[in-house]
Simulated assay, not measured.
Amino acid sequence: MDEEVGTEATPPPFRGAVHGDDLDAARELYEAQYPGEGFRLDQLDRPFDYRYAAVGDGDVSLRTSEFHGSARGTADAVPEYVVSWLVDGRGTVDVGRDEVALKPLVPRIAPTRAYSFDFADYRQRLVHIGAAHLERLAAERGDVASGPVTFFHAAPVAESALQRWRAVISETTPVLLDLAAPPLLRAAANRRLALAVLETFPHAVGPASSVALASVAPGGRRVALAVEFLHEHAHEPIGVAEVARAADLSVRGLQVALHRALDVSPTALLRQIRLDRVHADLTVATPETTTVGAVARRWGFAHLGRFSASYHERFGEHPSVTLRG
């Protein structure tokens, strides 16, 4: 974990766990952790009990939730970004809208707006990223000018991206679990994990993205579909026509919609996404394991001179510097 760490002070670490078999106590706990409305807990066909544990700090924390019962309700938008995966049990998020039925051991990012949920008899692992921490890194990357990041929670995530996510989780977890870890090491782990969220889960990019894609104007969902398709298939030799079909638009309609929403063309947006993937790969690699040229070619950049110039313009450094760490 040799990413450059900012000068912001790392929040003090914490560790805590709560467990019991009282429905009212469980409701109070979960309503505090995930504010919302209509929170309903019920006992099923076995004795009710729960356990909730968290370790980390205000920027990044790892959590576990075990719940023998059912839980339904609506979670409000909160100043955090949450990635979770089931170990077992059942869970559905964004019920009645863009529903996602969670699958065991498949990470998903929670909606970045209020959403309904329905869980039963489950064990869940979660990663909470503080909004200020993730949004600062998103601005550094050029994903947004400032402010919230709009994630497409229902978009599929490529298996290659999930493999990279799991590798980052494996590497950073020992540091986050260690309350005595040196502050610089913890800060590096926090940064690494927050960047992995941005690199793994599809989200809107561009200075106007969060405003444009949150709009309820007709066509906004089609823009989101186009962006989701680009993220999901960035590793494939796709063309503008394929993106347009995925968004149910003509090629010209796609170009106009992306220009209005994000002030970018389809090919330029795909290039940005692929540059981000190169940056992610170089960040976790070393000169002993790969070369800049190999990574660039893997993401479709055949002309290394033009690639290097574009990379420097987007990230403020040459790719060889990123690789050397």
Rank of each mutant, 00 (worst) to 15 (best):
T173E: 08
D24Q: 11
M1G: 12
G38T: 00
E236F: 05
G130I: 07
H235R: 12
V216E: 11
A25T: 11
D45S: 11
F151R: 04
A71H: 05
A212E: 06
Q43I: 00
I273Q: 05
M1C: 12
E199M: 04
V55M: 14
A189E: 07
A139G: 06
E140K: 09
G219W: 05
V284H: 11
A188L: 04
A145R: 14
R260K: 15
V197P: 04
S250A: 11
E66S: 12
P35A: 02
E31M: 02
L41Y: 12
R90Y: 13
V127A: 03
E140T: 08
A75R: 09
P111L: 06
L179T: 15
T286G: 14
E3F: 10
V264L: 09
V321Y: 15
D22H: 05
E28T: 15
D49P: 14
A188Y: 02
V264F: 06
A226T: 02
H312N: 13
P104Q: 01
Y81K: 04
Q272N: 14
Y311V: 01
D2P: 13
R51K: 08
R192F: 01
G91L: 03
A302C: 00
H303F: 12
E313K: 13
L262F: 00
Y30A: 08
G89D: 08
F151S: 02
S160A: 14
A9Y: 08
L282C: 07
T150K: 11
A53L: 09
A132W: 14
H259S: 08
A101I: 00
E66V: 10
P13M: 14
Y52E: 03
E199A: 01
P47H: 07
T286V: 13
G36Q: 01
R72W: 05
F229P: 12
H19C: 15
L185W: 10
S210D: 06
G142H: 03
A25M: 10
D2F: 13
T290P: 01
F14I: 13
A241N: 12
G58N: 11
H233Q: 10
D57S: 12
G89M: 07
S160P: 07
A167V: 01
D24V: 00
G56A: 14
A280L: 10
A294W: 00
D121R: 15
V60R: 08
R46G: 15
D94A: 03
R141G: 01
Q43T: 13
A138N: 07
L275C: 15
E232V: 00
R27N: 01
A268I: 01
F119E: 04
P47G: 08
A246V: 03
D2E: 14
F201V: 02
G220V: 06
A114Y: 03
A25R: 10
